[in-house]
Design a binder for these strands. Structure first.
Lengths: 255, 255
DNA sequence: AGTGTTGTTCGCACTATTCGAACGCTTGTT
DNA sequence: AACAAGCGTTCGAATAGTGCGAACAACACT
């Protein structure tokens, strides 16, 4: 479960991926810019880029190198491995249509949350999340819902490994505080998020578990705090999501 | 444009990607199985896997290692770089709904075709193509449509680099034959595919170009040969796609 | 024309990777 | 119950491969 720090990592592979990561963050870059950002000789970066280009992992256009579509193949494959994606997708679409807000399906890998699929209703807001986005579980409504379905030991492991970094001043940063919230979530069945990741953004999340009760993911609904008041979240919307999650769980058990 | 073979590739990075590629193809594997397939020492493979695991590019579960969701982030990013995706998506959905068949949006990188987005209508057939799939352009209706919008020199370059490998016995394998077809495609505005990639599968494809006339991709519609007769393809469906492509081109020019 | 970029190639020193052997561990067999 | 065979994992040693830096060519902008 826990990924322990290894003694002898393959540094060369790590730098190739560091280059890809930078290209993803910054868009299109040249060897010189990359070299100075990564503290490498530009000849080294150049050699890596050419190797990556050969296989289509990066592409060279007139402005420089960018991430290539070859990686889409890997990403889609990784997503299809989780059959939560296929099962939850129609429900997410339905919820987005029905409520008009942004709805996400999130899953967990190695103690981090990944946004599998999202659908935006009529007046859904723009958030930094996109498909594929990796987040800290304690910063998400869906993430806290997932954590609530884990054992306390597993939650401790995850905190030990990733910490509780803050995003806004409402983010949970204390272990005790998190466990308190998880207790309420287990009790009520849903998690709330009030500006803990983006100011003025509220959300509800409910866990999706397998027959053994282990979490396979969560679905969440988010929107502006003025529209998503505590009353609406705890009553109307939480129940809506709980019903949807239940359906997804049933469908998951036959796939 | 053309990716020329480099003298000194970064071998270590290449093996890391070879491992990922194998994991994608075979699903879940252990170090021993991977080592024998790639002709490497299992200790070497193990070290690569642990490095990849550390960053979330692969994940270890009870059956072995699999491709991790971290790569979804890269893939989605690569797709979003092509604004064809965002613009063509609603049109593809609409065509799928309207015709009931499978509709794809395809783009080109380094002389290969990538399936950006696909939507299946009511009675659409299952094909090997998924989102992210990389194909040879000459094997696809959409691919031939893209080639028809390139200059002859560029098409020659692409053939030199990737060849004309066959998939079925109807696949185009001769340079002259391809150029003949491209002439007709340029003339009529659409490309046909009759069992050239999958037996009993027919398709139509039309190119999408920018203001300068350079191809940015194509959309295609495919289905079983008995339903997609030559008459229907050349008349009804080709016109439908041409209209859609035209709309996409206009929307692209304002994005 | 000249100066400052950038992307690219190549030889050399040395770091980092590869291999193989050996370890503990589980699975299945006699 | 004991043993064998398979797996994943760790570690040292040899050498193969990487990273650096200097030098070159191709542009762009004075």
């Amino acid at each position: 479960m826990t990924v322990d720090r290894q003694r002898r990592p393959v540094k060369t592979a790590a730098t190739s991926f560091a280059i890809l990561e930078r290209l993803k963050e910054q868009g299109t870059l040249g060897p010189t810019a990359l070299a100075s950002e990564l503290d490498l000789a530009k000849s080294t970066v150049h050699r890596h880029l050419k190797t990556l280009e050969q296989e289509g992992y990066v592409v060279l256009d007139e402005d420089g190198y960018r991430v290539g579509l070859r990686l889409l193949d890997f990403g889609i494959h990784a997503r299809n491995q989780h059959n939560l994606y296929e099962v939850a997708k129609p429900k997410v679409d339905e919820l987005a249509e029905q409520t008009g807000e942004k709805v996400w399906c999130v899953t967990e890998e190695q103690g981090r949350g990944y946004h599998l699929y999202g659908a935006g209703g009529k007046h859904s807001v723009r958030t930094p999340a996109r498909e594929g986005t990796r987040s800290y579980l304690h910063q998400l409504a869906a993430g806290k819902a997932i954590l609530s379905a884990f054992s306390d030991d597993r939650v401790d492991e995850i905190i030990d490994q990733h910490g509780l970094p803050a995003k806004t001043n409402a983010t949970i940063t204390e272990r005790d505080e998190l466990f308190e919230q998880l207790a309420t979530i287990r009790d009520r069945g849903f998690a709330l998020n009030r500006e803990e990741i983006v100011p003025k953004l509220h959300a509800v999340g409910v866990p999706i578990t397998d027959q053994a009760g282990h979490p396979v993911g969560a679905i969440s609904l988010s929107g502006p705090s003025n529209r998503l008041t505590d009353d609406r979240l705890e009553d109307e919307l939480a129940n809506l999501l709980l019903g949807a999650a239940n359906e997804v769980e049933i469908n998951l058990s036959f796939s």
